[in-house]
């Protein structure tokens, strides 16, 4: 019974982080949510009795993906909130050095 509660909570947290990653207009918040999603995925692999995948996901989801996306989010300017995704006015005003 308690194991079902554990699995249910894990799936709930997984789906909440996934939706929050996509719903967040703030790029930095989306990236942090995605890091949390990767950590939860490692826990899911543990529950699925796949310690190998959990190991890889812990190394990749917690470490490498987070660094990559944080770096990229900084580069692309997380400070500007992404306007509504239906509108296409987010064309970067920060032009490169010409």
């Amino acid at each position: 019974m308690i194991e079902w509660a554990l699995d249910g909570l894990l799936v709930l947290a997984l789906l909440v982080t996934a939706v929050a990653t996509l719903a967040s207009r703030d790029l930095f918040r989306a990236v942090v949510m995605f890091i949390a999603f990767g950590l939860l995925m490692a826990l899911v692999w543990v529950r699925l009795q796949a310690p190998d995948i959990a190991l890889a996901e812990a190394a990749i989801g917690a470490g490498l993906t987070g660094v990559l996306l944080l770096d990229a989010a900084r580069h692309l300017g997380y400070g500007r909130a992404d306007p509504c995704e239906g509108q296409d006015s987010d064309d970067g005003q920060a032009g490169p050095s010409r």
Partner: peptide
């Protein structure tokens, strides 16, 4: 799973 915990502990510093 102890190894997984070790990896997670070491690599979450990276972020």
């Amino acid at each position: 799973l102890m190894d997984v915990a070790l990896t997670l502990a070491v690599l979450s510093v990276l972020a």
